[in-house]
């Protein structure tokens, strides 16, 4: 990742705008301490949302649909088909809730970053600390959901265990890009655009049915969406339909992560250390 090594080197990285004191943990810790005071239900709801979807769609709709054919030709139950998609979507929504909405409030209203950047912390510490927190929550939800899948018999291969790191990669990609974009937004109306982009992506990215149902040109568009890459990656792991193309999905997220970190860090520096 050249952009990451570049981050450490540039001239303006020193002095007032120095990027890091290697203490992203302190930012993560702030969220950990803050979470103790928040409503338990808010924390837990992030877990239940995909479980409810799985119950209603997997058990309910699944009874009508029967089996779905995977790209490798195997037929799996509808529940086993959508569960990994729900996991990927949950990783996305969780990451964006923290890295977009919570960051927006901290940046524009609570002035948390003004306080942080008056200490020895640098903007890269803040960006990484916030993203780590989004991942931590995403990781907890993802793991809990995978346990539910295991109990429901929806993990068809031992490789399902790798869906946990995969969900973290997906969450990291969305968290980092969401934070980068949020740092440019100033109003609630602009924040609504994030939801406006998320919804169609959620509906179209192969979460609920294979994208082979679409005409070719729609498939190409969907394949450009990050969520489709996340869904495919996690579905491959939980169903055991492994494929070299999974490396492309991972690469897609690596680029997202790098770009998001660069933009979020630069922007925090421009906003608070100028």
């Amino acid at each position: 990742m050249t952009s990451l090594s570049e981050l450490r080197a540039p001239k303006e990285a020193r002095g007032v705008g120095a990027l890091s004191s290697g203490n992203a943990y302190a930012v993560f810790n702030r969220n950990l301490v803050g979470a103790r005071g928040t409503n338990l239900w808010v924390m837990v709801s992030g877990f239940f949302e995909p479980v409810f979807y799985l119950l209603s769609l997997g058990a309910g709709l699944g009874g009508l649909i029967g089996a779905v054919e995977l790209p490798d030709g195997r037929a799996v139950s509808y529940a086993a088909f959508i569960a990994p998609g729900l996991l990927a979507a949950a990783a996305m929504t969780g990451a964006i809730a923290d890295a977009a909405w919570n960051v927006f409030f901290k940046m524009r209203f609570m002035r948390v970053y003004d306080a942080m950047l008056a200490t020895s912390l640098g903007p890269l510490d803040v960006a990484l600390g916030e993203m780590a927190w989004a991942l931590f929550r995403g990781g907890l939800y993802g793991t809990a959901f995978l346990v539910v899948m295991q109990l429901a018999g929806l993990n068809l291969s031992w490789t399902a265990i790798l869906a946990i790191p995969a969900a973290l990669v997906v969450a990291f990609g969305f968290a980092s890009v969401a934070m980068g974009i949020t740092s440019y937004l100033r109003s609630f109306q602009q924040m609504d655009w994030i939801a406006f982009v998320m919804l169609p992506m959620y509906m179209l990215s192969g979460t609920f049915f294979p994208i082979s149902q679409y005409p070719d040109w729609v498939q190409w568009i969907v394949m450009a969406f990050p969520l489709w890459h996340g869904t495919e990656l996690i579905r491959g792991l939980t169903t055991g339909a492994l494929d070299w193309s999974m490396l492309i999905h991972v690469g897609y997220f690596a680029v997202m992560i790098a770009l998001g970190i660069v933009f979020a860090t630069r922007r925090l520096r421009a906003l608070f250390l100028s």
């Binding site: 020193r14 002095g15 007032v16 705008g17 120095a18 004191s21 702030r30 301490v33 803050g34 005071g37 928040t38 609570m110 002035r111 948390v112 003004d114 306080a115 008056a118 200490t119 020895s120 640098g122 250390l273």
Partner: peptide, 28 residues
């Protein structure tokens, strides 16, 4: 020290009370 080159080292030895309070309202 020169803040243009050693910002974090300087900030580590300063206490700052900004004009507008920015206490963390999610913490006690």
């Amino acid at each position: 020290r020169d803040p243009d080159r050693q910002g974090p080292e300087i900030r580590a030895q300063l206490g700052v009370v900004p004009q507008l309070d920015n206490l963390d309202t999610e913490l006690s």
